[in-house]
């Protein structure tokens, strides 16, 4: 069979299970291997039980209490959860968070994927560009970010200076409640380095023979991208999507730093986690904050489960 023949059916390969629970490209069924598996898992299990589960369950317990961090928690049943129903600032924070997730995640992933593909092959000096494009992500949660962002989006910032050149009156992008969230989306897209690196690593795992075969067949850039790169990269796209959604739901630092911890102006950048933090550490209401955290966990869990479910239809594994 020719190399060309191999390519077209990538999309038609067996669907991936929701979990890596079945083996066998050729349909072999692997037998259980409990001893080896649990040995490999031992460090993780140890960490899970000694470090992760305790605090998680403690926070679950605290979500049913009135706990001000200083005095002992008092059991109050579901009160924290019923309070969430009527908390308008919480509802607002959900709106802000969902908007942010749905706008910034696809944008960031698209930019990261585009840049990764462009930088992967064929451009001389790509190592240089890769590093340059990654540089903003290095700044991470640095205090400098708050200052830098004002320098760009403030009333006298770079953006307004550029707009003034073409005769447009700018505005205070960070301080106007209608645009503040937008600047955080830009900030998130600006730090697309992490998903880009993961895409790059993924691209490197695609055997070059596929491309060689496509070249023999005369496939163009777009053809190669859509017929080879994209399908073979789906496990990585899936990974990035799942993680970036989780990450975006938990987004905290950037809004915290840029708004000086207030979620302002007018709560327009009050992310769910920022409000949670504000309740927990600002208002000493750790019981309520814990309840919020578990509510968020349910939301993120639902999204992740939906993602895994949908992955059956579009993610292709090579195993």
């Amino acid at each position: 069979m020719s190399a060309l023949g191999e390519l077209g059916s990538l999309r038609g390969k067996k669907p991936a299970g929701q979990l890596p629970d079945r083996g066998g490209g050729a349909g072999k069924v692997y037998k259980k291997d409990n001893l080896a598996a649990y040995l490999f898992l031992a460090p993780w299990l140890l960490g899970l039980f000694l470090i992760t589960i305790g605090p998680m369950l403690a926070s679950l317990y605290l979500s049913f209490t009135d706990y001000n961090l200083i005095q002992a928690p008092q059991w109050i049943g579901l009160e924290n959860f019923t309070r969430m129903l009527s908390d308008e600032r919480l509802h607002n924070s959900l709106r802000v968070t969902f908007t942010y997730v749905f706008v910034s995640v696809p944008l960031q992933l698209a930019v990261a994927l585009l840049l990764a593909v462009v930088l992967d092959r064929g451009v001389r000096g790509m190592a240089f560009y890769r590093s340059v494009f990654y540089l903003p992500s290095l700044l991470g949660s640095s205090v400098a970010i708050a200052i830098l962002w004002r320098q760009v989006f403030g009333t006298e910032g770079l953006l307004n200076q550029v707009l003034a050149l073409v005769g447009i009156d700018g505005k205070g992008w960070i301080s106007d409640p209608s645009t503040a969230l937008g600047t955080l989306v830009v900030l998130n897209v600006w730090t697309f380095g992490s998903p880009m690196v993961i895409f790059l690593a993924g691209l490197r795992q695609i055997p070059t023979m596929y491309y060689e075969a496509a070249a023999v067949d005369g496939a163009g850039v777009l053809g190669r991208f859509f017929r080879i790169t994209l399908p073979l990269l789906t496990p990585i796209i899936f990974f990035n999507l799942v993680l970036q959604i989780i990450h975006a739901f938990q987004s905290f630092t950037q809004a915290f730093v840029v708004s000086g911890g207030t979620g302002g102006p007018s709560d327009s950048t009050m992310f769910f986690t920022l409000y949670l933090y504000d309740r927990g550490f600002g208002n000493f209401d750790m019981g309520y904050a814990s309840a919020m955290a578990w509510f968020l966990l349910v939301i993120i869990g639902a999204f992740t489960a939906a993602n895994f479910f949908a992955s059956k239809y579009w993610v292709f594994y090579d195993d």
Partner: peptide, 24 residues
């Protein structure tokens, strides 16, 4: 003393006993 949450499943709790107990 804290009330142990009634929702916690006994088996899971037993597994995590050390960590949870000291934390709570």
């Amino acid at each position: 003393r804290p009330h142990i949450p009634p929702t916690a499943r006994p088996r899971l709790r037993a597994l995590a006993a050390v960590a949870v107990a000291s934390t709570l």
